[in-house]
Amino acid sequence: MPDGALLRLEALDAYYGRSHVLQGVSLSVESASVVALLGRNGAGKSTTLKAIMGIVAPAGGSIRFDGEAIHHLASHRIARRGIAYVPEDRGIFASLTVEEHLSLTLPRAVTRGPSSKEAIYEQFPVLAERRRHRGNELSGGEQQMLAIARALTQSPRLLILDEPTEGLAPIVIESIAGIVHSLKGAGLTMLLVEQNYPFAVGLSERVYVLGKGRVRWEGSPAALEASPEVAATWLGV
């Protein structure tokens, strides 16, 4: 892999209590590319993302963003480097309105350009309609859009998405997919964990397959399609 990857994980180790959930995970994300992490439940996908965000402290290995080590930094410092995170549970605040969600990062957020609140409302008309509604009044799809929109207010250089289509109706998945595809079109670098195999494969340039805390396979989506035994062993597809 050429140097100059935006994000590079090397031999990352992490534990949950005594269970060794990440066992030397190495992967890299090139600028302006989309990378998908696939694998069964418990393979270590979400933990990898949490380790990048500083939510789970790595026990060993390194994480570099734009060439600089970030694995020792506090979560908010990692985010300020330009990494935005949409967690699996979406992390929507029940008592905050849509507007408040999009204003939380305001001093650092831009007032013009694609990350401004107005531009975001244009991109997410559903959220504009529901500006005054609180997080707990939104549907699952609206919450997911809000989580992505909130991440965009940070003007991220890397967007990390943990199962953005999980638990959503097919029609909502379509609109989420539309948004993610347009972000990709705009050149945003993304790292994606996804159980929705066709969605992930259709979106990404590179796929890592995790199994029991290790990278079991890596390659292009086309190569994965051509290797049914990988999918059968590690994805159960």
């Binding site: 939510i55 967690p87 008592s95």
Partner: peptide, 16 residues
């Protein structure tokens, strides 16, 4: 209010 709800997520937004 966000911090009372979910402190981890607030930090992940870059807020100290």
């Amino acid at each position: 209010r966000a911090g009372v709800d979910n402190r981890t997520m607030v930090a992940a937004l870059g807020i100290d």
